[in-house]
Nucleic acid binder design. Structure first.
Length: 83
DNA sequence: GTTGAGCGTT
């Protein structure tokens, strides 16, 4: 089961809370995390979001991938396995 | 007030 999303091409103005609001329209967001630069704490421009089910993750991909958000067209895909 | 390809850190 892969219910994690990889989102890239994020506007720097988007934070994990903004992401959560975006994905909550397509399903239950278990967690959302924008990857931040370790040194500055600012956004690195990509993020991972975990949905309740793989089905919702797919719905979010189809719903948000390529959608202009905060001035940038989001790139949404199923995340790889980090383990 | 800065940046831009990418699959993660506490």
């Amino acid at each position: 089961m892969q219910n994690k999303l990889y989102i890239s091409n994020l506007a720097f103005s988007i934070d994990s809370d903004a992401l959560r609001k975006l994905l909550t329209n397509y399903g239950v967001v278990l967690s959302s995390q924008v990857i931040l630069q370790r040194d500055t704490g600012r956004s690195r421009g990509f993020a991972f979001v975990e949905m309740s089910t793989e089905e919702e993750a797919q719905a979010a991909v189809q719903g948000l991938n390529g959608q202009p958000t905060e001035g940038r067209a989001l790139s949404v895909a199923i995340a790889r396995d980090r383990s």
